[in-house]
Amino acid sequence: MPIVLATENLDKRFGGIVAANDVSLQVEHGARHALIGPNGAGKTTLINLLTGVLKPTAGRIRLDGRDITELKPHERVRLGIARTFQINQLFADLTPLETLGVAISERQGSGRDWWRLAGSKKGVVEESIELIERFHLADVMSERTAILPYGKQRLLEIALAFACRPRVLLLDEPAAGVPEAERHEILATVAALPKDVTVLLIEHDMDLVFSFADRISVLVNGALLTEGAPEAIARDPNVRAVYLGEAIDA
């Protein structure tokens, strides 16, 4: 399988803290790739580097072989990289319907239209409805996002990344804080994505990781410790040492 997203010797330092240390990660086309590691390992930092929120101290990032290291976040979205945030980043004063409309209009190229009303484009509305239904947001679709229950906000967080119709989807603990019962549902939605959408998932729940991923990378102290198929990772003594006390049973 061809490599879609790759980093080459990526470094990121915050003062004395090394949050990314010579990371060379390769994500294959269509992969269900999980990124695991203890708290503070640098997982979120890596996503921020991939999406352009942070500039690397050194190293390159490539999408389909093209160097995107210097591109701005919104330019990378247009090339097909979308993400969710570990801590919700939503538009508090917009409704879910408006929120999704913003992202869909932008993707369809009508986000800068100033002469017609928002909601007057059929294509945008139809796609909003599709996402609203898929993510069970119909009952709250015209409420202010700020007052939604946490679980609904979390669903909107993911729906918003979907609205970008990414080729590569980066999920930063999508199920964080979501009740056990709803977690599998969220991940099932992600797993049901078309095979040509590449997914990089950060997740602490090992059951979820092993049921989802076909490839796992382990990040410790900003550096890649190891990488491989789930069975290999589960057997790896180094990984077990890092997760001392946490059972890894695939």
């Binding site: 999406t51 929120v53 701005k72 976040p73 919104h74 979205v77 247009r78 979308a82 993400r83 945030f85 980043q89 939503l90 538009f91 508090a92 004063d93 917009l94 408006e98 929120t99 409309g101 913003v102 992202a103 209009s105 932008e106 993707r107 009508s110 986000g111 800068r112 239209d113 100033w114 002469w115 017609r116 009303l117 928002a118 484009k121 945008v124 918003l160 609205a163 970008c164």
Partner: peptide, 23 residues
Amino acid sequence: NSPFGLSLRAVKGNPLRASAVGI
């Protein structure tokens, strides 16, 4: 009240997320 205006409100509300949806 246009899509442009709506995106402005998104930018005002959360510029980080606005750029993460391609704005």
